[in-house]
């Protein structure tokens, strides 16, 4: 059996604020293999983005990874010093951000921003870096890449900018790409194009992809596996079809039900009652219990992970089906 491209074990990233410790990520474990796509799903504040930044070693103070292991191709990233992490970022592991209007530097040309990514990791001439930049733009479907190298971000549309950001992320052929809601800020049609392209680019290069999103529809069409996060923990994880068709955790069920579908037209959408708890003041035990109609006294303790026959994992004392 080969080593997983990314293996996260019991990751805990906490923020030490004046108002107390915020446990943004609190014991998250998952793995992604080469060529596979994992959808990391959750509401705002569930800790999915912090998980992504933790993997890149880009958690800013007052945040800190306090426990756990992050293994990229078998190497523990937490054992690396700042320079070791820098050398990996943009080379073996890359990230695409949510808002393409903000991620590119407005005062540098596209060509500079692509070429500097190459030259940060490999000793190549300016001309060679520029050739790679041109090729990378062509790969993400930007017409006349040669002329576009000299353009500035404000001369591109949102969708085009996200393509450029993807080209930058993929230019050094990383083993792992973390995409933090890269289509949320785009039009639906552009969203579809980017999704399809991202999928084929990753498949072609054999990279592993972690797709962070709150949109279950995107996950359904894109991912192989899905991990559902709630209040800093993964509550359910498994193959995407199984989890979305027959959710085991009441929270997953609630998420699936709150997606508008064509079948249920006219019926009121089902909502999850209540609000997600503040990550600064999480209740003991299962964090979802105050919103859950299946909760019992047992839920005051923290549920452990239960493995099911079909290779899924769920953290619940009262799953919707016997695992």
């Amino acid at each position: 059996m080969t080593v997983a491209t990314l293996r996260v074990e019991n990751l805990r990233t906490h923020f030490f604020t004046r108002h107390g410790v915020v446990k943004a990520v609190d014991g998250v474990s998952f793995e992604v293999r080469a060529g596979r796509i994992l959808g990391l799903v959750g509401e705002s504040g569930s800790g999915k983005s912090v998980t992504g930044f933790s993997i890149l070693g880009l958690v800013d103070p007052p945040g800190r990874i306090v426990d756990g292991r992050i293994l990229l191709e078998g190497r523990d990233l937490r054992a690396l010093d700042a320079e070791g992490l820098r050398a990996l970022r943009g080379d073996r592991v890359a990230m695409v951000f949510q808002d393409p209007m903000m991620t590119l530097n407005p005062v540098l040309t596209i060509g500079t921003q692509l070429a500097e990514t190459v030259r940060a990791h490999r000793r190549v001439s300016r001309a060679a870096a520029r050739d790679e930049a041109r090729a990378a733009l062509a790969r993400v479907g930007i017409a006349s890449p040669d002329a576009r190298l000299a353009a500035y971000p404000h001369q591109f549309s949102g969708g085009m900018r996200q393509r450029v950001a993807i080209a930058i992320a993929l230019i050094n052929r990383p083993a792992l790409v973390i995409a933090d809601e890269p289509t949320t800020a785009l039009d639906v049609t552009i969203q579809g194009q980017i999704l399809a392209e991202m999928q084929s680019l990753v498949r072609a290069s054999g990279a592993a992809l972690v797709w962070i999103t709150h949109d279950l529809a995107v996950v359904a069409g894109l991912a192989d596996e899905v991990a559902v996060m709630y209040a800093g923990r993964i509550v359910e994880r498994g193959p995407v079809d199984a989890v979305l068709d027959r959710p085991l955790h009441p929270y997953t069920r609630g998420l699936v039900d709150s997606v508008p579908s064509r079948r249920a037209r006219g019926e009121p959408l089902r909502q999850i009652p209540g609000m997600a708890p503040s990550p600064a003041a999480l209740p003991a035990g299962c964090a979802f219990r105050s919103r859950c109609d299946r909760a019992s006294a047992a839920c005051l303790a923290e549920p452990g992970a239960t493995l099911t026959r079909d290779g899924r994992e769920v953290r619940c004392f009262h799953p919707l089906e016997a695992p």
Binding site: R86, G90, M95, F97, T117, I168
Partner: peptide, 14 residues
């Protein structure tokens, strides 16, 4: 605090 700085760091720039 801007995204482009975080993105630049994510690219592995010194």
């Amino acid at each position: 605090a801007q995204d482009y700085v975080k993105f630049a760091r994510a690219k592995g720039l010194a």
